[in-house]
Design a protein around this nucleic acid. Structure first.
Lengths: 127, 127, 127, 127
DNA sequence: GTGGTCTAGACCACG
DNA sequence: GTGGTCTAGACCACA
């Protein structure tokens, strides 16, 4: 796996370390990185994205404590083998539930009909 | 207008005062509250949702400094009259663009096909 | 940059947090603090001027939302880089226009001739 | 004296009642309204400037408690006779001292030279 | 170390 | 009645 697989938006309100953890969670759930795959080193990620190494380290540690990653002494961090194989579609959809619910609520506050929202999202999903 | 129009989620990562501002922005853009409408008082909102009055006050002040609201001295806060009429559907959809984009990106990271995501969102939108 | 650059008058009718914001606006426009300069920390300013840290924090937040300052995560607040270079003399004079107009109106209400007012102001400006 | 002699800016940060009191102070000090002159009624001022009568009433009461005005039962408020004759130029200039000082400080924060500030003020004073 | 958020409560300003 | 300001202090998030 390569440092360029991660997307980091320093200007976002979401803290950087959480951007990393959440992306790892989804990349693993979606199977784009598989159990045993070695992650890029803290230094590589920090250098590539111009963020503080401590921030990356913190993200990795958090992911490790969640069981997403495991530390291979002397080699680095890898995707955890146990219990973290690709999940079913239903499970993966469930991970998006909070975001979908929030979007629906906001569309209602805007008095937007369903159709244009679905059309826009559909378009982005097909790219 | 009634304090129950606002929805507050104390457990959310988004700070309460910003939840309020963002909701106001959408309720105004969607036309659910119209220019001149008086908002519920700081104390009412704070009491109803069991948050500190200063938190609500902060949201109102911020919304005022953005031009969403205006202060009627001695009467309270009202939806600003200038240039804040209900917006077109296109404009309102644009306000959702960041959330839609984020959702699409996350679905892609989860390797989810478009169909189940759209179906789930469509279902919530029709409620 | 040092906490002593700011002047705070606790007895003034103008709220402290706004005194700070307005001073920052002028110090930036006048070039006394330049884009990228790190401001003194909230705690430093609060300690130095014996005000509550939240009051200073509020000023900084407001200045940030106006685009005067930007947050460097973990480092503090800095003068915003974008479009905030020192302004021309004409632009800076325009920032004083409301105060000058008010002074002229008050002098006229007092039926004061121009000369003594100008003399007094001139004297203070040359110190 | 006529209600139109007062200038009221509802949008200003300065509270309306104080705008009124301060103007009265200056109009009296400058001799534009003389001891014994009858002021317009609260209702007239409130109607003419579209402000709350209570606000005008409060301003009048405050001015009375300061000795600027006196209440003539059945006739209304009048400029107080005692000790409130037109003041000397030096005394009137002293009333402007705080505003002049503030203006000078702000010009310094803006790094403005004396000349353009004095020129602008002079121009407004001669109108 | 930095700033952010929230609370509880006091007191003021305004109408 | 309305909102505004400030304090004191707790706790969190981030780097």
């Amino acid at each position: 796996m390569d440092a360029s697989l991660l997307t980091i938006q320093p200007a976002s309100a979401e803290p950087i370390y959480r951007q990393i953890v959440e992306q790892l969670r989804r990349l693993i759930a979606g199977g784009q990185i598989a159990p045993g795959d070695l992650l890029p080193s803290v230094r590589d990620v920090a250098g590539f994205h111009a963020v503080n190494p401590m921030t990356v380290s913190r993200a990795y540690s958090l992911a490790e404590s969640e069981g997403l990653l495991e530390r291979l002494r002397g080699k680095g961090m890898a995707v955890a083998a146990v219990k973290r194989a690709t999940q079913s579609q239903v499970q993966r959809l469930a991970l998006l539930e909070p975001q979908i619910t929030a979007l629906a609520r906001q569309a209602r506050e805007l008095e937007l009909p369903a159709e244009p929202v679905l059309r826009r999202l559909g378009k982005l999903l097909e790219e």
